[in-house]
Design a protein around this nucleic acid. Sequence first.
DNA 1: GTAAAATAAATGGTATACCAAATAATGGTC
DNA 2: GACCATTATTTGGTATACCATTTATTTTAC
Lengths: 245, 245
Amino acid sequence: MPSKKSIIKLATLPRQRLGDQIADVLRQQILLGDLKPGQNIPERETSAALGVSRTPLREALLVLEAEGLVEMAPAKSPVVAQPSLIEVTHLLLVQSALEALAGECACEEASQDEIDEIEAMHQTMLSTTQGSDPIEFFQIDMGFHEAIVASTKNLSLIKTHKQYHARLWRARFLSSRRRIAREKAMIDHGRIVDGLRLRDKEQVSSSMEEHLRRAIENVRIVFTQEQTEENSKTARYKNQENVHG
Amino acid sequence: MPSKKSIIKLATLPRQRLGDQIADVLRQQILLGDLKPGQNIPERETSAALGVSRTPLREALLVLEAEGLVEMAPAKSPVVAQPSLIEVTHLLLVQSALEALAGECACEEASQDEIDEIEAMHQTMLSTTQGSDPIEFFQIDMGFHEAIVASTKNLSLIKTHKQYHARLWRARFLSSRRRIAREKAMIDHGRIVDGLRLRDKEQVSSSMEEHLRRAIENVRIVFTQEQTEENSKTARYKNQENVHG
DNA sequence: GTAAAATAAATGGTATACCAAATAATGGTC
DNA sequence: GACCATTATTTGGTATACCATTTATTTTAC
């Protein structure tokens, strides 16, 4: 009865490169916050923890560096990227342009089934607005955007959008916690869905841009709040130091 | 007299990773056509030719794969990407959105000096239109676009644009040979420069989109021509085969 | 006791060696 | 003579070993 063996052939048949699998794992850990911004990712330690050698781990790190999720400097441990407010703003501007394009293309390329599914996701989100944990709500929110991009069938656009999506994950997750932001986001989504049903390029792309512009503002607010908290912490620490001295 | 030594410390001080240097070399070779689309890049042979080991060569290939210039399949030699017409169209659509965004941002972020320089490049191009080899003209053309993107100071946008630029290099170079295309391009560039001087976002971004939309049409024409030539070649070969048989 | 120099530990960068899958070549059989 | 099986070679994937640089610690000199 070799049924068990047939399931486990990860090691025997490298259907996908080990480096790519590791990249997926690390990407998830970065997005979910298991690896926090600024944290070191020493090669030996990490590869040992994952039960692989340094070679594929390094290949994964190089991919993540190309994606902008990890920063590598000579003779320094690779470190999880910690984009500043201005960098996140830049990223959101590009993402905004990408999604506006996606909206336009979707009006031409999306099948009726795909539009129906996008609308269904929107409905799910509307009914989930109140209860449930924020991370689940956020996942659906991001799925909504991904579905629109996917419906364009433009592989390059999909891939690039995905990369920006990953780099923006954390910032957008943090800013999605604001109640007001979520409510306004739902209104934007509604307009986007309406535009898609009408296949009205102009309406969809402008709603998309509007939506992302709001996201930029939300991120700015959250960043300045964090900055303020950080400052007060620093002040406390300084006080402690003074106490010690 | 250790002056000679001081120049050559590539091997001793890895100021930049070898893999990145190799990636630069290969990228250039792909863009310039030394490595043609569809051509294999066997790891052992190539690394030996470059005088390095497989490890950094592989890292370079992975970066180029992430950029979309090289395709790697399990148990197959890496191969120079050979995008189809539809893929190039997809790439140009994204590039169009990126440059439209760049145009808008440039209206706000570009310094007067930068706009002056962009205009100077345009003037150079106008005077170079007739004589000189096509590759030089093309270089200036691409420099014009890069300068606009660079003036936004948006590093993410610059990097992403650069990657799409590399993937589109060959297609745009081939299509830039058409005389009519060049003339119309000059008119577009003029409108873009005018818009930048006026800092008129709307004019710049729409001119950019118009310009890229024209590029899509040009690429389509060149591709179909190439396809036709290819077919006639195949026909000839078939005839030869018939003669042999 | 402090500061500076030297040494030891750790880290990333590169080269080499080994393995498994795939393909090409060769030999045997029908 | 053609086709199939088997083996040999080539290729990419992974692991390990080595080197150079950097950093932390310790020791020594002032």
